[in-house]
């Protein structure tokens, strides 16, 4: 590995890889704050990716495609949320059901529409890159300001999430729903409304995450989410349920992913091991985070 020539593209890859994780984790943060571990993120990302690129290809418009991807994920989140809340269902089983539904329906539709369960390439323009004067800053410029519009929106989303959660009545009630639902009831509000809102936000956010994945590749790849929903859950935990912490955790995991992509070029390690790196890094971070927390308690 040539440090000077490979480092910048690798870092740039890490910043790009952070986008879907960040979107998913920020969405999951809302459900986490209302007291629900949202394991449906994985499936919602898959749906966003599939319908996002399908929509973009059908309408010939990237923005409409993203909107369709977001709509698909949000509608499925509505189903997931309604069944979970209205019927007092076990949120983990409904989450698994959502994931199964997503992985099943995307394969069935892919077979129907494209006659393959494999990779479906699309002829689409690249996501537009927003250039500003800041892009001219050496090293940092291209890293943070040479990214496409969805990547840059994800950072904006982190700020918006912080403002909504910390600085609005909605955010306060959302947090209270998780920490003290009785107080929310005492205020004459319905905790389930806030839970459903959180689930819908996570759906929309995963729609963005998924759309980014497929539109960035200009292809739909089976199992395109490849664990990102789960990694996002760990990022929420590691980030201490705060947007800034989540940003840092996502950058860490994105770094591991970018490194494993680059490692295929110069490390003599079987590709399957390299694919396992993101999962193993996430697991290690989860365990380390728990150990630190445990040490602090004692």
């Amino acid at each position: 590995m040539n440090f000077a020539t490979d480092l910048v593209p690798m870092l740039s890859g890490a910043v790009a890889a952070m986008t879907p994780l960040l979107f998913a984790a920020l969405g999951g943060l809302f459900t986490e704050l209302t007291g629900m571990l949202n394991i449906a993120l994985e499936g919602l990302i898959t749906l966003g990716a599939f319908f996002g690129i399908l929509g973009a290809s059908a309408t010939g418009n990237l923005a409409l495609g993203v909107a369709i991807g977001v709509a698909a994920s949000t509608l499925t989140a509505l189903l997931y949320g309604e069944i979970t809340l209205r019927f007092k269902a076990n949120v983990f089983i409904t989450g698994l059901a959502t994931n199964l539904l997503a992985s099943g329906i995307t394969v069935v539709l892919s077979q129907q529409l494209f006659n393959t369960k494999g990779v479906v390439p699309f002829e689409l323009p690249d996501l537009p890159v927003v250039t500003t004067g800041l892009s001219r800053i050496p090293l940092l410029g291209p890293l943070f300001f040479g990214q496409n519009i969805l990547a840059m929106s994800s950072w904006l989303a982190a700020i918006v999430a912080w403002v909504v959660i910390r600085r609005t009545p909605f955010g306060m009630r959302l947090r209270a729903t998780g920490s003290n639902p009785k107080a929310v009831v005492a205020l004459g509000l319905k905790p389930d409304r806030y839970r459903l809102a959180a689930i819908l936000i996570s759906g929309a956010s995963c729609g963005l995450a998924g759309s980014y994945l497929s539109l960035n590749l200009s292809a739909y790849v089976p199992n395109i989410s490849s664990g990102r929903g789960w990694i996002a859950l760990v990022a929420i935990y590691l980030g201490g349920r705060r947007p800034a912490g989540i940003l840092a955790a996502c950058l860490l995991f994105a770094g591991a992913e970018a490194f494993s992509n680059y490692a295929q070029g110069f490390l003599d390690v079987p590709p399957d091991f390299i694919l396992a790196i993101p999962y193993l890094v996430t697991l290690a971070a989860l365990v380390a985070g728990a150990a630190v927390r445990r040490a602090k308690e004692h």
């Binding site: 069944i83 076990n90 059901a97 199964l100 539904l101 329906i105």
Partner: peptide, 13 residues
């Protein structure tokens, strides 16, 4: 997988 998701939803709900 889709049928299974229906089973999951129904049973847990």
């Amino acid at each position: 997988a889709v049928v299974q998701s229906v089973i999951f939803f129904l049973i847990t709900a």
